[in-house]
Amino acid sequence: MSEFLQLCFNGTALGARYALVALGFVIIYRATGVINFAQGGLLALGAYLAYALNDTAALPFALAVIGAVIASGLIGAATERVVLRRMVGQPVFAVVMVTIGMLFILEQTITSIWGFEALNLGDPWGVQIVRAGDVVLAQRDLWTVGIAGAVLAAFFAFFRFSKLGVAMRATAFDQEAALAQGISARRVFAVSWGISGALACLAGVTLAAGPAALSPGIGAVALIAFPAMIVGGLDSPVGAVLGGLIIGITQALTTGYQEDLFGWAGANFAAVMPYVVMVLILLVRPYGLFGTREVRRI
């Protein structure tokens, strides 16, 4: 039983990170109808910026993270302004490919600046743990769950109560009607990308903290956050969070029990488990758990 609880906790911590990334995807998708494959690049870049501010500029950890979050937000908004805005009205294929191209550029920029070696983020949690009964809780995981929970709550409040948040929802609902009401779609697009960049940075920092260490490969996590987003439904923020948790917990349980239950599936099956879950759910619900059915017109 304690092993099960342990795995569930690990999965929740992992899922919280997926949820942060997936929420970033969903925010951009709702505002602009684009799936941002470059999110993984932004995530890694955010974590490396935090490292640079903490290690090279010698800021305290919390300040470094805040600085990196702001910088990533600005980089996200700048990407939208410089590249994506030129792609308005192009077919889905072209837009998806542009963001994939940016992913490869970002990843290689990072390795050419910081190299391939694993770096220590300098976070205050390290490998410290808290014991609750038989379950071992890593401090960084507790902080991750806490930070993710607080941030997600803040964003849902932002969408519900703030003027800009409501403007963003209105734009997502009907762009032309929103324009007619005097909402600037451009600002909404830029803010969406900014928020998404900031979320990616937070996910990156929590991923690279502690024993995991910071290496260019952490961007690959965003590729696992895709199933999280798809499972929840492309355009549902609630779905993104739930999807993240579902995928995270499934993955942790697979890691724990696969050997005994279905060892035939091969070593490291947990890495591809999210995609299996995604395909299964899509077979039943082609628009995810909470996604809106697309209405197709001629």
Binding site: I35, P227, L234, N268, A271, V279, L282
Partner: peptide, 29 residues
């Protein structure tokens, strides 16, 4: 047949999954 149910963005991500599942198969069979 997946392409029949899924379009555009959804299809892109499912085919992305194909890469990872395929690599897993190539490594384990």
């Amino acid at each position: 047949p997946f392409a029949l149910r899924l379009r555009g963005n959804y299809l892109a991500i499912v085919t992305l999954g194909l890469i990872f599942l395929g690599e897993h198969l190539f490594r384990n069979l």
